[in-house]
Design a protein around this nucleic acid. Structure first.
Lengths: 276, 276
DNA sequence: CTCGATATGGAATATTTATTCCATTTTCAG
DNA sequence: CTGAAAATGGAATAAATATTCCATATCGAG
């Protein structure tokens, strides 16, 4: 079996390691399969484990794991582990320790609340890094770069996002209009053909945002939706859908991921429009 | 010298380790001092290094490092390292790998921009965890819990924060008034004695916010400032100052840390006011 | 079924790493 | 200055870990 032949070179980065792992995992005999599965699920333990520990975790003898490392292209386990030890992310455990201290200050205390919201914010941002639809983002930039005026609709919890977009577009000298519902005035007639709408809404989906999105579509505007998933009513009929989810703590959700996405979108659009 | 006597028990957590390290560092002979300094600055390498590597880093012979581990209360280096290996934060390197991939998609591309803003958001939140003034936060909660109406002032970049606070206070059934400057109307007469103001502003400090804060103080309101440091003009004269900084990427800054802080404040105030 | 190729497990061996011990140096109190 | 206590460095030793090798088992093609 050609899979037993070690690859000629060892992966030189964690990313390359993952690719190699995926590639060789296509066809493996029983014990080596166990190794692959366990390693894939415990990449974060490679730097801090021994052959014996990982082998025990995979329920194989150490020699099987040695063979597995060689199939991946390493001379042995030590070479593989060196890759991970050298690539180790700095900063731990400072943040984790600190967060725990804050949390331990007492359930419900302002400090413990802060710890929870900090954590949910970070998790939300991390989740965005993994889940972002890069094509949709690029498409949204294209659509908005070609638009006349960019209209912004987001109410209640989404309002901070919409207003931040208005701020950034102003900074980037992009024609933008914030629909803030002031005085219950009806600005729908400002939705002109060739314009575009960024509609921002999350469950339980503001009626006003949905209505404005529908009105925009009817008037021939392109609609870019920022919402919490493909099942969102806002996604339906939008030209582009940027899905982003936030982690809850209690009755409230972070806004960190949404703002990072919005900011990236606005800066990319502003840059594209200025021709830089 | 009594410092040479090993402590009776080994630290049982990373936090305890840090406390022990700080405690014994008060007085140490030359080589052991070098060990303390190096370990303190490289806690994140303990799990993935050998005695020889850490000793070389500290510029001491391995035996000095062994002695240092024993002074900390461990039987040896292995016991100390075990503490860190067992406490190792899971999840790495998935996020780091992903972020690198996003960044590598091309400088200035929407995706690379997103990577940068995700990273600056996470760093800002982490920085908040480390820098938060817990006493100031508790004091702000006390002040706002005792207030009649909570007035909210934040313009331009700070406006999303102020509007989010308004949203959360509404959800928590707290009397709150968002000063949004609509129609350039002057709502300063709504600032009643017994009320409080949350004033949010960052460099280059909105004139409107500073003016409203000053007006509030003159009318006997308590002022809670959310701003970017003790040198901020907003901090001067405020009853409580909540300092929060954000990491820049290019001309724009994250808002993640500020929002997490604001959200925590609002929820704590709402909870305190409802008597739960 | 046979036989060759492949997979497997475990023990022996090699290598690396942690630890101990001791001679020497340095420090500090009297 | 002396002498005892403490600090220091390095080599020897012990322990842990990685690796190799070989006998045996399993698989699959003919």
């Amino acid at each position: 079996m050609s899979m037993s032949e070690p690859s000629s070179t060892a992966p030189a980065s964690v990313e390359e390691f993952r690719e190699r792992l995926a590639m060789i995992s296509a066809e493996l005999p029983k014990r080596l399969r166990q190794c692959a599965d366990h390693i894939a699920a415990n990449v974060d333990r490679i730097a801090v484990s021994t052959v014996a520990e990982l082998a025990a975790g995979a329920d194989v003898p150490p020699s099987a794991l040695m063979r597995f490392c060689q199939i991946l292209g390493f001379s042995g386990f030590s070479e593989m582990q060196r890759l991970f030890r050298d690539a180790y992310a700095p900063g731990w455990p400072d943040y984790a320790t600190r967060l725990k201290t804050l949390r331990d200050s007492g359930a419900g205390s302002p400090t413990a609340l802060l710890a929870e919201f900090i954590d949910s914010g970070r998790q939300s941002l991390e989740s965005l890094a993994k889940s972002v639809d890069e094509q949709a983002l690029a498409q949204a930039v294209d659509v908005l770069s070609a638009a006349g005026t960019v209209h912004l609709a987001g109410f209640r919890r989404a309002y901070p996002v919409a207003s931040y977009l208005a701020y950034v577009f102003e900074k980037m000298a992009v024609s933008a209009m914030l629909h803030d519902g002031a005085g219950k005035l009806d600005h729908r007639f400002a939705l002109r053909p060739g314009d575009a709408l960024i509609a921002i809404s999350f469950a339980p989906y503001s009626v006003e945002t949905l209505a404005l999105a529908e009105e925009a579509r009817a008037r021939g505007l392109a609609v870019v939706a920022i919402t919490d998933g493909a099942v969102s009513p806002l996604a339906e009929g939008a030209d582009v859908c940027l899905a982003v989810s936030e982690v809850d703590f209690g009755a409230f959700r972070s806004l960190s991921a949404t703002l990072a996405l919005a900011l990236s979108l606005a800066v990319a659009v502003g840059t594209a429009r200025s021709g830089v």
